[in-house]
């Protein structure tokens, strides 16, 4: 009884390994496009909904932070954003926590990763960077919106209707999304950055999420400055500048991306070669 079940499970495993080796399910498909469309779509939708919410409740209940309506409408939005952030962080970091099982099997059985499978990983890495970039777009929109908000309302709280999406949604979201990019590169494509079997941390893993972190860090400095001096006459005053310096770290995202470019062409070349030998064999 026990012996048959073991042999059955071994057989099942062999079939699974055979499937995974040739990666029939993924052939010709690009799962990372789905990630891009869903991730980018949900992100864009969230930015759009926030903007609609602002249009509706910005003047009626946004002007005085001490009122109960402000707490309901604006702090309510803040808590919803935090739930979205926590969910995104948990999903993003647990989904890519373990190394890819397909890659592990292919390495063991074939001694290498199937070029098309690896291309799918690279595509997903690029897609995470593109989704992060979309939240960057939200940062620039809500930041300039904050400039115009301060033209009409005297500063009374750090949680204004323009700060709630800017400081407490798009900044942390950028930390999470750029962090997921680095995390994905570390768990799926580390061999492209440190060589096969190599160790170490490429600094582009660290510099890319550092942009979001420095943006968020300067919120502390900025609010401290605004609580001490009145600078509303000048938006280009010095304790806003570190926000601009922080965004320069996002250039490291292009180092993260372009490091994979030689491998993309290698893999595409191999796929083309495989196709031509298969065509010859069949004719």
């Amino acid at each position: 009884m026990a012996a048959t079940s073991i042999s059955a499970s071994v057989e099942r495993q062999a079939v699974q390994i055979e499937e995974v080796k040739h990666d029939k399910t993924a052939h010709g498909e690009m799962p990372f496009v789905r990630f891009l469309v869903i991730g980018g779509g949900l992100g864009l939708l969230s930015l759009l909904l926030i903007r609609l919410w602002q249009g509706e409740w910005w003047f009626p209940v946004g002007m005085d932070a001490t009122t109960p309506e402000f707490a309901t409408y604006w702090l309510g939005l803040l808590y919803v954003e935090w739930i979205v952030l926590i969910a995104a962080a948990i999903i993003g970091f647990t989904a890519y926590r373990k190394p890819c099982p397909t890659c592990a099997v292919q390495r063991k059985e074939l001694g290498r990763i199937d070029p098309e499978h690896e291309l799918n990983h690279i595509g997903k890495l690029w897609a995470t960077v593109a989704v992060a970039a979309m939240f960057g777009f939200g940062v620039s929109y809500f930041a300039e919106q904050d400039a115009v908000w301060h033209q009409i309302v005297v500063r009374d709280t750090a949680f204004t209707p323009s700060h709630i999406p800017l400081f407490f949604y798009t900044f942390p979201m950028l930390i999470i999304m750029t962090g997921v990019s680095s995390w994905y590169a570390y768990n799926r494509l580390h061999h492209l950055y440190v060589g096969e079997g190599g160790k170490g941390i490429p600094i582009c893993y660290l510099l890319f999420p550092a942009g979001g972190w420095f943006l968020f860090a300067n919120v502390a400095f900025n609010e401290l400055g605004h609580s001490s001096w009145i600078t509303e006459e000048l938006f280009v005053q010095p304790y806003h500048w570190p926000f601009a310096w922080a965004t320069y770290f996002f250039f490291a995202g292009f180092a993260l991306l372009f490091k994979t470019v030689p491998r993309i062409f290698e893999n595409l070349g191999e796929i083309a070669q495989q196709a031509s030998t298969e065509a010859k064999a069949s004719s």
């Binding site: 690029w126 960077v129 970039a133 979309m134 960057g136 996002f250």
Partner: peptide, 19 residues
Amino acid sequence: LALIGFFTVIPHVSRMLYM
């Protein structure tokens, strides 16, 4: 898409905070 996103936010934030 990545270029559009980052080359909107980075220059735009610099621009609004310096000029």
